[in-house]
């Protein structure tokens, strides 16, 4: 049990700075998710917390200890790797016991913890098998088990679900969340999958090019993205961004005041809809030429373009009868609109 504090943490590889000053306060028992595109530095940051990468500047503390110069084993953390990193020559039981044996934990205590973890993760039948005899999902559970038996101050997850198929991923996501809740161990979780990030996180950190774009609860990030980067990264399909230069192709109702300095107007596909006949639009109104319709089950996404070819997407419930090349008007209420300034920052 411990909080993790990062103070202006930086990382250079030669002259290139990959982590450009990150400060974070991760509360005890919190599940913090680091999310961002490939190469944004999220894995590097996690590995710096773990002690697998050096820290160029700044401090990282776990609990009350500054861990900058401590070995990974001395930081009291456990890590779950993307490729599981199970020791192939050991049985599942030996894999779980290895870290404890190295710490000279008494045998009865090791047995007790393995039994507990195996029960929680439902891997009891596989304890005497080798990793290669297990399926991907089972290996994933063993990797989790190896972290749990250590009873560390913090769990670090490095894209642990990206090698699983879609169905299993959802299932394990739920399980990780449940386990983390019940153990109440501080966790840092790295993923590039925004769905995973949204569902797992107590708080979410969006990283871009080595900097924090925004920190907040998933719903805060969804409802009030601080930048156009966050706006397009969180939510699927991503938010439509309409540059003000294209404003001749759309209209806003007279009572709506666009904040001064607005360069881009954002609206989520799920907030755009076909107006009911006879309603008066109180917000944004756009004329769209349909390019493609994606039916995803309960709803469909329509991809189209404005007259000047600016792409735009919107959601319609159920199966639609919209055809390619149809031209239609869609609208969004004014409180659903997001305004961004010329550097991409949120206005109002």
């Amino acid at each position: 049990m411990a909080n993790i504090v990062l103070k202006d943490v930086r990382k250079n590889y030669g002259a290139t700075e990959v982590i450009k000053g990150i400060s974070l306060d991760i509360a005890d028992g919190e599940m913090l998710v680091l999310v961002g595109p490939s190469g944004c530095g999220k894995s590097t940051l996690l590995r710096m917390i773990a002690g697998l990468e050096g820290i160029t500047a700044g401090t990282i503390s776990i609990g009350d200890r500054i861990v900058n110069d401590l070995e990974p084993s001395e930081r009291d953390i456990a890590m779950v790797f993307q490729n599981y990193a199970l020791y192939p020559h050991m049985t599942v039981r030996q894999n779980l016991a290895y870290g404890l044996k190295n710490r000279k934990t008494p045998t009865e205590e090791i047995d007790r913890r393995i039994t507990g973890a195996a029960k929680a993760l439902e891997i009891e039948p596989f304890l005497d098998r080798k990793p290669r005899q297990l399926s991907g999902g089972q290996r994933q559970r063993v990797a989790m088990g190896r972290a749990i038996v250590r009873e560390p101050a913090a769990f670090l997850f490095d894209e642990p679900l990206s090698n699983l198929d879609a169905k299993l991923r959802v299932q394990m996501r739920v399980e990780i969340k449940r386990l983390q809740r019940s153990l109440a161990t501080t966790s840092v979780y790295v993923t590039h999958d925004q769905m995973e990030a949204m569902t797992l996180a107590d708080r979410l950190v969006v990283l871009n090019a080595g900097r924090i774009e925004q920190v907040g609860t998933p719903i805060e990030l969804y409802e009030k993205p601080a930048t156009t980067f966050v706006a397009t990264f969180i939510g699927s399909p991503s938010m439509n961004l309409l540059p003000m230069e294209t404003s001749k192709d759309w209209s806003v109702s007279d009572n709506l005041v666009v904040p001064a300095g607005t360069a881009t107007l954002g609206v989520r596909p799920e907030d755009l809809s076909l107006p009911e006949p006879g309603t008066v639009t109180n917000g944004l109104q756009v004329s769209v030429t349909v390019l493609a319709v994606e039916l995803v089950g309960a709803e469909s996404y329509v991809h189209g373009s404005l007259p000047d070819r600016q792409p735009i997407a919107f959601r319609v419930p159920g199966r639609s009868h919209i055809g390619i090349d149809d031209v239609m008007t869609v609208h969004a209420d004014w409180e659903k609109l997001h305004f961004f300034g010329d550097t991409g920052q949120r206005l109002g």
Partner: peptide
């Protein structure tokens, strides 16, 4: 990653 896992495992 195996070597890293081992170093975390002490």
């Amino acid at each position: 990653s195996l070597i890293e896992a081992a170093s975390i495992d002490g």
